[in-house]
């Protein structure tokens, strides 16, 4: 229960939902080992508070806009993650930055936070990822696995996991 893999974003806006798509794909391919929780957070805010509270490790997957070309994968760690979330503008009543701030106020802030991000190509209305970003799902899942392995977690592949995708 110490590590949370959290995918966020809006799946109705194509690449905006890439974080959720990564988490869905991860669950199709791997058995979730003890010590790991996996959550599709959608566009929730305050609902996520008790999921992230007191985690040893929080790994967030999300679309990010860095000015880099679409498809660029980034990793942010340590104090840079809350700082990064504070900079962003959010149309949410309480975005992830606020939820992390509330966790701080309540002394429940996750000890280690990592953000795996990818620069989206399109955020038009639609349920499908763009081809360019869909092609990066394997890369993103590999990055998630690296993070998990660094934390001593080794998810076992589900037999024929790829076939279900």
């Amino acid at each position: 229960m110490n590590t949370l893999l959290l995918g966020v974003g809006n799946i109705l806006l194509q690449d905006e939902g890439v974080g959720v798509r990564v988490v869905e794909e991860f669950q199709r391919r791997y058995l979730i080992p003890e010590g790991l929780d996996v959550l599709d957070g959608g566009t929730s805010g305050i609902d996520l508070l008790h999921h992230i509270a007191n985690r040893e490790h929080l790994i967030i997957v999300d679309a990010v806009k860095t000015g880099d070309p679409p498809g660029t994968v980034i990793r942010l760690g340590g104090d840079k993650v809350p700082a990064f979330f504070r900079q962003k503008i959010t149309p949410h009543q309480l975005g992830i930055s606020d939820v992390l701030a509330v966790a701080t106020l309540r002394d429940e802030h996750p000890k280690n936070i990592v953000l795996i991000g990818i620069v989206p190509l399109t955020m038009e209305t639609g349920l499908e990822l763009s081809t360019a970003i869909a092609a990066k799902l394997d890369t993103l899942i590999d990055r998630v696995l690296e993070e998990l392995e660094a934390r001593g977690l080794a998810p076992e592949p589900i037999a024929n996991g790829d076939a279900a995708a």
């Binding site: 679309a63 990010v64 806009k65 860095t66 900079q87 962003k88 503008i89 949410h92 975005g95």
Partner: peptide
């Protein structure tokens, strides 16, 4: 809600 993207280009709140 429509857009949830994290944006480090726009700092104006």
């Amino acid at each position: 809600c429509a857009i949830h993207l994290h944006d480090d280009e726009q700092n104006e709140i």
